[in-house]
């Protein structure tokens, strides 16, 4: 920049404002906007479906209670992580997650593959009183969930809002939703959500994703299976 240009920026606030805004927008457009139009961002997985009304209610309770402040929902393609939690996470698994709930801190373990790990009754007991099952846990107790009935009054507008942002709920599904929630407690919803987490992808689907490496941005399979290549 020549001395002259610097002077203009130093003297003319309007020009400084415009140039600063443009400079801020360059990186933003490339790294935040452009990816929306890129194919590799979200690989379709045919077995991934929208959440049922009950699971959705559970997810909303998960958000309300801020479980994401202690739990992550992404298994990284690292050997120890795959051993501990299971198959590493694929982009397509989160296609209907508005918002994403990956978290940033593991005060408790990752929950991306928690579905099916324990029976429902374990979760009920654990949510009610975590220390009755894991003596030195510091997870808060959520006993009130078992006695709080679900409020079905918002479910239609919730599913409607999700449809607006792209989740393919049908009119029938939305109409039937309140009935599915009748008589259920918050605990039922919470457990339904936990039990579906990470289960929508089956082994066969995983293989196809990894094979179609042309569109798949995921880390190569070899990283996961060979012990020596834990981190490149």
């Amino acid at each position: 920049m020549s001395e002259n240009q610097v002077n203009v920026l130093e003297r003319k606030p309007v020009i400084l404002i415009i140039v600063t805004l443009l400079v801020i927008l360059i990186g933003s457009v490339v790294t935040a906007l452009l990816p929306f139009f890129m194919e590799g961002m979200e690989v379709k997985i045919s077995t991934v479906r929208p959440y049922t009304a009950l699971e959705l209610e559970g997810r909303d309770i998960y958000m309300r209670e801020g479980c994401n402040n202690c739990h992550t929902q992404t298994v990284r393609p690292l050997r120890d992580e795959v051993l501990r939690y299971g198959e590493f996470s694929k982009s397509g698994e989160f296609a209907y997650d508005h918002p994403f709930l990956w978290g940033s801190k593991r005060t408790g373990p990752d929950l991306a593959r928690i579905g099916g790990k324990y029976p429902d009754s374990w979760h009920v007991q654990h949510m009610t009183d975590p220390r009755s099952l894991v003596k030195e846990s510091n997870m808060p107790a959520y006993a009130f969930m078992a006695t709080t009935p679900l409020d079905p009054s918002n479910i239609k507008s919730k599913m409607g809002a999700l449809r607006t942002v792209g989740v393919p709920y049908t009119d029938e599904e939305i109409a039937a939703a309140p009935e599915l929630l009748a008589g259920k407690t918050e605990m039922d919803a919470m457990v339904a959500y936990l039990q579906v987490l990470g289960t929508m992808i089956n082994k066969a689907a995983v293989e196809t994703v990894v094979d179609s490496a042309t569109v798949s941005p995921v880390v190569p399979d070899s990283l996961v299976t060979t012990p020596e290549t834990e981190v490149k």
Binding site: T31, A32, P35, F36, M41, E42, S91, E93, F94, A95, Y96, D97, H98, P99, F100, W102, K158, A161, L162, V165, G166, V167
Partner: peptide, 11 residues
Amino acid sequence: YSLYAGVNDAN
């Protein structure tokens, strides 16, 4: 509900 989903939302 966030306008964006999953990976894009995270990004």
